[in-house]
């Protein structure tokens, strides 16, 4: 099955790179990388793509009105209360960069979750944070059960002649009446499952960790790409290829900018290709 570490490293690398620099070409390359990773994951993925693009667009449009920066005035609007209706090309450029960062983060996260096998993600997490990982695994196992319990409680109330309430406030109040038996029934199941865990030997000492299967060739490529990407991100934070937008944007097409954007793009193509989900 699909190992979680390669897509995790690549996603972290893309998000770090996008946050580490303001150079639009590099951020754009990270965004394209996230898009590629997103398409390497199995469907469905329309919704997250839309969420990502709408969020990016919102920030792009918002920025000129909340920022009072930039030298190239495109539209000389008034300054009204807290808002500045003067639009500069720098403000637009910065809005674009900020929007692409958010879109990159949304797409990379959703791609990681669909590329990684949940059971193996759990196993990976249990190496790092065993108690948290076990808690989440257990609650994920119990969630469908408690959703059925929640439905059953609602039905129990209807079977006594009390139908669903209309109106928001009445509906919330009815929810409040049912939340107590829901939690009570949950706690009961919680004690039952704890008892079953003790009967199965939990709490006797350290648990053995399950062995991880050896990575495949593609997974090794993914790991390498992710590691290089992370190093690149750290280098950008440390001051490799500095770039400023305000008050006057640095030239877009610098050698270092082009080279780094090209590198990010290349890494993304290799990484997404290696992790492409095959049915």
């Amino acid at each position: 099955m699909r190992a979680p570490l390669p897509p995790l490293l690549i996603a972290i690398a893309l998000i770090t790179i996008a946050l580490a620099t303001s150079q639009p070409l590099i951020v754009g390359a990270a965004f394209v990388g996230a898009l590629l990773l997103h398409h390497a994951a199995p469907p469905p993925h329309r919704l997250m793509l839309r969420v990502a693009l709408v969020s990016a667009l919102f920030i792009l449009i918002l920025n000129p009105f909340v920022a009072v920066e930039g030298d190239h005035v495109l539209f000389a609007g008034p300054h009204f209360l807290l808002f500045d209706f003067e639009v500069t090309s720098e403000e637009l450029l910065y809005g674009l960069v900020a929007g692409l960062r958010l879109a990159t983060a949304i797409l990379a996260t959703s791609a990681f979750l669909r590329l990684a096998d949940p059971d193996r993600t759990q196993a990976l997490a249990s190496r790092l944070v065993p108690r948290s990982a076990l808690t989440v695994a257990l609650s994920a196992r119990l969630a469908p059960t408690l959703r059925r319990d929640a439905t059953g409680l609602g039905e129990a109330l209807r079977l006594r002649g009390s139908g669903p309430e209309r109106g928001r406030r009445a509906a919330i109040r009815q929810g409040a009446v049912l939340i107590e038996p829901l939690v009570a029934s949950s706690l009961e199941r919680g004690v039952d499952i704890s008892e079953a865990m003790v009967a199965r030997g939990y709490g006797g000492g350290t648990m053995t960790r399950l062995p991880e299967p050896a990575p495949t060739r593609d997974e090794r490529i993914g790991l390498a790409v992710g590691a290089i990407g992370c190093v690149l991100g750290i280098a950008l934070i440390a001051g490799l290829a500095p770039y400023v937008i305000y008050p006057l944007a640095d030239p877009l097409l610098s050698t270092s900018g082009l080279a780094l954007a090209g590198a990010v793009l290349l890494l993304s193509i290799v990484g997404a290709g290696a992790l492409r989900w095959r049915a």
């Binding site: 939990y202 000492g205 053995t208 960790r209 399950l210």
Partner: peptide, 10 residues
């Protein structure tokens, strides 16, 4: 999970 609790070799 039961076997992990009992510390069987991985």
């Amino acid at each position: 999970f039961s076997l992990q609790c009992h510390g069987l070799p991985a």
